[in-house]
Design a protein around this nucleic acid. Sequence first.
DNA 1: GGGTAAATTAACCATATGGTTAAATACGAC
DNA 2: GTCGTATTTAACCATATGGTTAATTTACCC
Lengths: 119, 119
Amino acid sequence: MVKYDDELDAIFMALSHPARRAMLARLGEGEATVGELAQPLDMSLPAVTKHLKVMEKARLISRSRNAQWRPCRREEAPLITASIWIEEQRKVWESRLDRLEDYLHVMEQEEGSNDGQAR
Amino acid sequence: MVKYDDELDAIFMALSHPARRAMLARLGEGEATVGELAQPLDMSLPAVTKHLKVMEKARLISRSRNAQWRPCRREEAPLITASIWIEEQRKVWESRLDRLEDYLHVMEQEEGSNDGQAR
DNA sequence: GGGTAAATTAACCATATGGTTAAATACGAC
DNA sequence: GTCGTATTTAACCATATGGTTAATTTACCC
């Protein structure tokens, strides 16, 4: 059974759109209003609002209020969560490579063997 | 203007589905056939084929042939690409924290003013 | 209160995503 | 060639995603 993980779903999904990555990058420099985030992004304000909702759901950003502005701030945790998942995967991959050499030695020693299954 | 990046789009999109992450994790242990990947995943073979296409497009996996089997292998590069992007973002975030004190001073000054446009 | 600016919501539309079942393909074995 | 197994393709469907414009909300200013 799949180990279902809503959190990673939402985080990676949020990171998969270039406009959202651009906004995150902009927010790396500090808080910004919706208008400021929208300005370089060839799309309407409502579209930007939707992207912000996606990122908010993934907790990549949080919002506050300042008069009629709703400044956005980037949150670190989801990026760490994503990074950890990726590095876990890479770790497994690396350790598999470490075992490859041993495996090949075993193969060499079993010269006579003829099992043609997947490899 | 948005710096458009098809590659990251495809990678993060591919990582955003739990079934695909499960398959990648399984592939971390070594090559597997479509049937082997499908077995723990409560869904039909055609659905699995589609997920594999998504991952192949993102270059997260590559395929070979062995009789009627099409074994899948995980590729490392896209995970590295994704990891680098994330760590870049975190780096910016960290350096922004270094500047936090200055930033708070600016905030204080803006609190008082009434035409307070955030910038 | 009325005017203006920032942002969101509503309504709508096109396309993508994620799934299904049934049919087709690819390949080895007989 | 026929049979059986692995996988893909085709056709279809429901819902999600990403965008639009128009209307609405929120808050400051006069």
